[in-house]
Design a protein around this nucleic acid. Sequence first.
DNA 1: AAGACGAAAGTGGTTGA
DNA 2: TCAACAACTTTCGTCTT
Length: 314
Amino acid sequence: MDSLAQTMMRKTLKECPECTSKNIFRDVEKGETICRDCGLVIEDRMVDFSQEWRDFEEDGGASKRRTGAPTSQTQFDQGLGTEVGTTSDFYKLSSDKERDRFFRLRKWNIRISTAIERNLKVALAELKRVSSFLRLPRSVEEEAATIYRQAVQKGLVRGRSMESVIAGALYAACRRHEIPRTLDEMGEASGIEKKEIGRTYRFVTRELGINIKPSNPADYIPRFASALKLSPESQSKAVEILEMARDIELTSGRGPTGIAAAALYVSSLIHGEKRTQREVADVAGVTEVTIRNRYKELIKKLKLGKNVEKSKRR
DNA sequence: AAGACGAAAGTGGTTGA
DNA sequence: TCAACAACTTTCGTCTT
């Protein structure tokens, strides 16, 4: 089967390949497709199927027909670039005035487009590379491109590598869309150290006045749970735990991934499908120690002790 | 032998004088 | 600008299953 056919298959997927359940949930914003019965994340990147083109044929005819590609932030000139023509056009011009004007425009056009836009061209290619590596939805890619554009205009790239600003912009865009990737994942995809990404991320968002809500630990749950092959029951239990934890302010100030990991660890114990601290720590990108600390707090403050004991005895 | 637990020391970032 | 601080990590020894 060629890859096009495979894509078509995926596009029309109606049942879960794992448990053949038809209970499939698509979250278009997050770009995730999840089986509600076994919790499997079937596709964490999907194509936006929404109709872009309208057909005006019936209500008015060809005069309203649109043409051309959709504009996009990920196109270095948004697909709307101008060309002032070449010297061969020059000979078509009649008066001296027109010739002067022609040269002036052409000179400026070249001057402006070369420096900034050449940079953007390279940068956006890199952005697309990283974003497709992380299988991020289109909407995030667009937002990241916008952020990068603004960063360039404000001269924030100076003194920093282009790649790190890209990574920072993508990280910020992910957070804005509430589909956070960890700094570790971003680092792996971009080849930039996670410290550096964090630094540029903070810098860029501060300078551009982009404000971002602290990320919600629950946003990490589906991905982590899927990586651990946990049942949907455990998954929803983990979310439940997170909600209770948030209500008593256990979550503020802590790293969201650590909390998410601890909640998953606890719920895996409760449902008798235990994962080791090591396993959970690895997928969440935190250490066992952090899980232990969060875990202790959860047990103590939420009085979950009994539940865990019970399932242990079984 | 593997996993869980906890102490101690180190890292990078934030905050407030 | 510096020191105190909180969160998290690394490392390592001990206990438990």
